[in-house]
Design a protein around this nucleic acid. Structure first.
Lengths: 228, 228
DNA sequence: GTCTATAACGGGATAGAC
DNA sequence: GTCTATCCCGTTATAGAC
């Protein structure tokens, strides 16, 4: 694509035959990025449904509408594609937790966090499932990175919760287990959506159901930890 | 197996040379069962860690200390082994929920259920992970069976919870979400044990930690649903 | 950058001797 | 029942033309 020689638009100076303009370099870069993005999207769908070994490069290529050879031009290997994907999703995934702050009202902060996590499960169920599979298997690919990030965040948020407790704004709850509870329950609706859908007929995509889940979780959690 | 012709041992009639006695048939049966059990155990460990496609028949055979050919004598195919395994575990897995009964005190019943689920996660983390992987992928192998069993159980337990609510023994909580919450949180300590261990340094195998988890979960859940 | 062809490998399943 | 050898397929990754 865009291989044809051209003059540099801004300078107007004559360039050697075939040398790319700055603009065309940018355009090419954008197209490259876009293609990588499409491939990563296809990989996410498939890896999250069938696991690393249950997915072939061929299937990803077909879904991304590129040839297998071409896919392997953009990513060295299947494993490189997989780990790139995990790495890119990690930041997004941990985002909701960062908002949690000691200056907020605890009930409001926890309610907001539950809501954010549910939104993440609703809008990115594939990402949730991918992390679930990966962690379940001992996170062989990016366990180190994951834990390093989580440890820092966890320490911060544990401190926030314990601060609230010393202020008497929260009953004496084990911070770690409260956080695990929120992770487990919110991610459950993405990871076990097959089961949830089979038993209730609904998923988080249904607004009424989403509100019902949010309400129930907040009621139970806040009812259990906010002093009377 | 045991295809060879033989006379019925109970009648006491003379048997052909080489025909097995009833006792030897029983012995052989026991050995067969034992071997199938060993293979299923090895399969559980590996499938639950690496998934169906991430595990080779060779690896299972090696762990079970049989040859690959021999393994495939006991189970027609890799898939037959996998689905047999899921089927055998399903009964065990749903056991704790059956105990739940309307004649119990709600706080005691829920506390006991949380405890039983935590014990199951502690003692059978591999089974928990296997179900997690399977359900996460849409339960292609035994989704029908799983849902059929769960639907019945769920309907029963939903009725129990709603009975308690009408009696004023429980606040007006959505039964389904309460059950999902208990499943999600208790199974989390098995399925995400890599993460839990990485962040806290402990697993449910540690008695102190186990009690801490039980206490925290019960406090939050019961605090949120038992009327004051 | 993109494609086709193919190398190189591992896996599931079967055949057949013992 | 158990083992070894082998078939055959799908897969990843590379080579090389365009």
């Amino acid at each position: 694509m865009a291989k044809s020689p051209a003059l540099d638009g801004r300078t107007g100076t004559r360039r050697k035959r075939g040398a790319p303009t700055e603009a065309s370099l940018l355009r090419r870069q954008r197209q490259t990025d876009e293609k990588r993005r499409v491939i990563l999207g296809a990989a996410l769908e498939l890896f999250s449904s069938f696991g690393f070994h249950g997915t072939s490069v061929d299937q990803i290529a077909e879904r991304a509408d590129v040839s297998k050879g071409n896919l392997l031009y953009y990513f060295r290997s299947k494993e490189a594609l997989y780990s790139t994907l995990l790495r890119e999703l990690l930041t997004i995934w941990l985002q909701p937790l960062r908002a949690f702050d000691r200056d907020q009202d605890p009930a409001e902060a926890i309610r907001a966090y539950i809501r954010q996590k549910l939104i993440a499960s609703r809008d990115n169920p594939a990402a949730s499932r991918l992390f679930c599979i990966e962690v379940l298997q001992g996170a062989p690919v990016f366990g180190g990175e994951l834990l390093a990030n989580l440890k820092t965040l966890m320490a911060e948020k544990r401190a926030v919760i314990e601060h609230w407790i010393t202020q008497g704004k929260l009953v004496n709850v084990a911070a770690d287990h409260l956080i695990f509870l929120i992770w487990a329950t919110t991610q459950h609706y993405a990871d076990f959506s097959f089961q949830v859908k089979g038993l209730t007929g609904k998923t988080l995509g249904n607004t009424k159901f989403f509100n019902e889940v949010e309400q129930s979780l907040c009621d139970i959690v806040l009812g259990g930890i906010i002093p009377k």
